[in-house]
Design a protein around this nucleic acid. Structure first.
Lengths: 117, 117
DNA sequence: AACCTATTTCAAACTTCTTTGAAACCACAA
DNA sequence: TTGTGGTTTCAAAGAAGTTTGAAATAGGTT
């Protein structure tokens, strides 16, 4: 005669835990998969110091890649890679001007830069 | 008779660029290294969907590791690893209760969960 | 057309992050 | 003291992210 095997719940949280509907209730209150993926892609864009600096710099002043390269000393291909990750995260975008690509923060990028700064 | 080799600046941004003190001026307005590292460590903590879900779940309800394991179906060692990354990012902490470790969000963790949610 | 210059793309090497299962640890009970 | 349940640590394998330099692309000029 054995009970169904369930996880023990420590006394100090059992009450509030069950009020919240237990595991099922808590899982249902979590954001949906798409929202989670969006958060992760923004977080991933900010998870490297190069990219955080670039986002802040662009928030001060939109710039072409050559200026970012001059400012940081990194290779073009490296800067280009990091800009692409920031773009995937929806934090920056670019407009073409003649030969130049001028990168600048999106609205989201601006809000994020303000908030984390 | 050659000029010192400097990066060309596209016309459309030269004005504002120089108003801001050029490369030097912009670099000086950037956050310091420690601030950047702090941002990166929070971002890194949020750069995996497992961890984002765990942070949200803990914001709903502090839980022991065994409940998180029951909720997600992950191995203890896996959950433990992700909790340690969240802890390094300063987003969660834990209190011991008997045999259990009850994880809960820090103030920063709560603010972040509210903001990204 | 041929030629710059600014930028991206590619592939290979390298580094870091994540998963896995086994072993160790720690608080408590018998 | 031995045992047990909850959790972390460890090492090895696997996956993903980053750096590098060379080659490709694309707009503008001669």
């Amino acid at each position: 005669m054995e009970d169904t095997k369930e996880t023990d719940i420590p006394d100090s949280i059992r009450g509030e835990f069950e009020e919240k509907g237990g595991i099922v209730g808590i899982m249902e209150s979590l954001p949906d998969d798409q929202t989670i993926e969006d958060i992760v892609s923004v977080a991933r864009a900010l998870s490297d110091p190069v990219r955080v600096r670039v986002l802040f710099a662009l928030s001060v002043q939109p710039m072409c890649v050559c200026l970012l390269v001059a400012m940081t000393g990194y290779a073009y291909s490296k800067m280009s890679y990091h800009l692409s990750v920031l773009k995937e995260g929806g934090l920056v975008c670019a407009r073409q001007e003649g030969n130049y690509l001028i990168y600048y923060p999106t609205d989201l990028g601006r809000r994020v830069a303000l908030w984390i700064g």
